[in-house]
């Protein structure tokens, strides 16, 4: 049975390994939503951008817009392929996937 997971990551990739572990263990076809301090990983041109881009073909990437704006990154270019969602979109992602895993 193929289930599709929604993974949330709320840690800065520069401080913790949560995003790394998520990227290592998320199965093809699942989605990753960056929230809270996790949103720093969505910005283009950082030292983690390539690691994220490497999985762009296999995973769908989303970032929570209000968290991006709160951190002064509202105007920053995001890694190509990222989709910005609000809390409504977060709820939709949870409903559309079979289960949710929080990488803390």
């Amino acid at each position: 049975m193929a289930s599709r997971m929604l993974h949330t990551v709320n840690k800065s990739p520069f401080e913790r390994n949560s995003l790394n572990s998520c990227l290592r263990l998320a199965r093809k076809g699942s989605a990753v939503l960056l929230i809270e301090d996790g949103v720093y990983a969505a910005v283009a041109g950082t030292s983690v951008a390539e690691r994220v881009s490497e999985r762009m073909a296999e995973l769908s990437f989303y970032v929570l817009g209000p968290d991006v704006a709160a951190r002064g990154l509202g105007g920053a270019p995001l890694i190509e392929g990222f989709r910005v969602v609000d809390y409504d979109g977060f709820v939709d992602l949870v409903a559309e996937h079979d289960a949710t895993q929080a990488w803390l």
């Binding site: 997971m5 998320a26 699942s30 289960a99 949710t100 895993q101 929080a102 803390l104």
Partner: peptide
Amino acid sequence: ELREIMAEQDVVLGG
């Protein structure tokens, strides 16, 4: 192997 184990779950806690 772990990726497959973790993908087939209903409720995920801890983290």
